[in-house]
Design a protein around this nucleic acid. Sequence first.
DNA 1: GGGTCTGTAGAAACCGGTTTCTATTCGGGC
DNA 2: GCCCGAATAGAAACCGGTTTCTACAGACCC
Lengths: 338, 338
Amino acid sequence: MAKCSLKMVADRAGVSKSTVSRVLNKYTEGFSVKPELRERILRAVQELDYEPDLFIRTMKSKKTGLIACQGELVTSRHGGFERDDITREVVNHLDAAGYNVCSTYNKMDGKSQYFPPFKCDGVVVPHNCNPARLRKLDQSGLPYVSVNGLACGNGCSVIFDERQGVQLALDHLIERGHRKIAYYNALRRINGKQHYSIKARQQAYGEVMQHHGLAPSDYYGDHFVEVEDFLSHEIKANGATAVLAYDLTLALALMGAARDMGLRIPDDFSLISFNDGFVAEAIRPKLTCIALPAEDIGKASVTLLLQMMAGEPVQKEHPVKIKEKLVIRESTRAIFDR
Amino acid sequence: MAKCSLKMVADRAGVSKSTVSRVLNKYTEGFSVKPELRERILRAVQELDYEPDLFIRTMKSKKTGLIACQGELVTSRHGGFERDDITREVVNHLDAAGYNVCSTYNKMDGKSQYFPPFKCDGVVVPHNCNPARLRKLDQSGLPYVSVNGLACGNGCSVIFDERQGVQLALDHLIERGHRKIAYYNALRRINGKQHYSIKARQQAYGEVMQHHGLAPSDYYGDHFVEVEDFLSHEIKANGATAVLAYDLTLALALMGAARDMGLRIPDDFSLISFNDGFVAEAIRPKLTCIALPAEDIGKASVTLLLQMMAGEPVQKEHPVKIKEKLVIRESTRAIFDR
DNA sequence: GGGTCTGTAGAAACCGGTTTCTATTCGGGC
DNA sequence: GCCCGAATAGAAACCGGTTTCTACAGACCC
């Protein structure tokens, strides 16, 4: 009924705790167990449905086999759609590498708590935007990787190449004849801090536009603009023919407001958004997106973390950057001369 | 740097481990500590930034202060939008009650693993649809509550009142003159098993329609129908004026296909969906929904679990049912006489 | 036959906490 | 001054595992 202990298994098999532990952990380092005894022990384990406590075993053993996952596991209400995908990829890769991923729900806005509150071999920090918490983790000396977020001195960071993604989006639009391309920025703050991508995309937009000799839109700066005001100003007044949106939620909001204001997509303006997902494919017009490949960032992050844990030298100076991908659908079209 | 132990705190304060433990746990049961000594200990704790290991303390103490959360924390790719909301509500309420919620990512489709793999006071199982895993948990004797899913003999279950929700939806449509109302069912299987709501909504639809003397649609049964085929048959051929969709993802798929087929919502048919969320408000037409209030189910679930853990008698025979809510938006309209 | 090496497995220490048991000091009643 | 109980705090046991240390049996060699 209740969970049974190593002692109970040992008693049932008529051996000592140590022998059971050795058999279960396949300890062959200078030791061996007679096949017959091994059989008896394994039978007892099976009969009692024994499984060791995942955490108590971490006390004595050097390797815990545990990876702690920090951060908003329960995604925020209006959070991006890509978050779950990324975390899932990371977890699956760690699982495949034989690690058990574990997390405790500690509110990041609560009293400054340590993370992790248990012993583990490494830490994954998805979508980080809490510098204080990160600094504490950094000081702990544990190997950690910040996935889709920045790291401090001792950790690694894997992020998306926002410059390349912006370039992908703008090239796509410029190739199709667009010259006045507005950017709808996000000013959502998570726990009082912005996600790095907000500033990165905003800045890349300015640079890439300038590089093409085009004027950036008025509203790509730091102050918040309502969707309706944005569309009135940029599309109706300034005559922009295309909009790049910070993420899917903003793109959806823009699409809704455009419909309400009598603006058609892509006839009156083209729309392209960061993040891809089920919704982008389901809505009409289907949204052209800059996808953030979850598989790629997940795999790269886990590879990096495993290297750190193995003590191999890794790139810590600069974040590893994952390429973004253009997914062309119906919301962008060519304009023939202006 | 590395995490420090109770012993280190004790040494620094010049006292024994037991005294530190007593001070930190506010042990006053027949014991007391001189204010001056308490001060010194607390100072040492602060200086060393000490926090006890969350799991190791569970070994000896009767109360662990831990709640395990089973299930798909990393939600499935195309999963419903309501899942995160519900889990978050549950976690926040447990947190408020002083419990630490913890989860390990164990693939539910993997080798049959026990859950939880550590000692805890109770278990939360959100969105359950894995009977085998649940049966094991049930046998463990731990207090547990199945949130938005069914339980076995020893656990409690809190689900939504699907019958009432279907009634809400159909009454809304019938009041507005609809008589031919089709139902678009889901046949998604999660880990080989269906979520209880699939059968519940399907069945309730049949009953409520019959109760109103109306004929249910052809396609509300168990076999899968493509959205296009569904719309051709039900709307174009059979002349249905309204559709009730199993969830938001299916509603989105229906909206997309309708647009592609030249069917307008709500002019050509009204659409109402289960689940509510950001997307329902963002798309056009805004979707009329049967909302599944996350706060209500979260609060009720936690209340129930805490009662079980306190040894109080609770309702185990039947699931507790949470009322669903009608959110009227733009996708449904009245038809004036037929 | 004695010494040594190897295979096998139990005993015991240990991890980091909580709880129980025990010891000492102090104050008060006589 | 002595006895006793309350207040205070250390010592030690314990939780459930892993790892190290130790012990014993048998094989092999000389």
